[in-house]
């Protein structure tokens, strides 16, 4: 029951956050696109690691994801700190 109650919260938070980024970078679609690419690379690496059952180290660590997003979101401290709330082990 706890998981069912928490999942929509995380989902809504993610929707709001993606929306906020889209709006913030409306005039700079490349930044938004790069952000999506970082997320997809991270997800792909996580999936590879999971499928390899511990025999594969993801090429993109959480720290690297954070660093890449920090470079992308420079001068947008609020977006970056909110991103930190999603990232495991940040």
């Amino acid at each position: 029951p706890t998981m069912q109650n928490n999942q929509p919260v995380e989902f809504n938070h993610a929707i709001n956050y993606v929306n906020k980024i889209k709006n913030r970078f409306q005039g700079q679609p490349d930044i938004y696109k790069s952000f999506l690419e970082i997320l997809h690379t991270y997800q792909k690496e996580q999936r590879n690691a999971k499928e390899a059952g511990g025999n594969y180290t993801p090429a993109l660590t959480e720290q690297e994801v954070y660093a890449q997003v920090a470079r992308l979101f420079k001068n947008q401290e609020d977006l970056l700190s909110e991103f930190g709330q999603f990232l495991p082990d940040a």
């Binding site: 928490n6 999506l36 991270y42 082990d89």
Partner: peptide, 26 residues
């Protein structure tokens, strides 16, 4: 507005699964 493309939706999916993982490991 919530005018989401499939790419947006997958970003939402990745972010929410990251948040779940974060909660599971804390």
């Amino acid at each position: 507005s919530y005018d989401f493309t499939p790419m947006d939706s997958s970003a939402v999916y990745v972010l929410s699964s990251m948040a779940r993982q974060r909660r599971a490991s804390s």
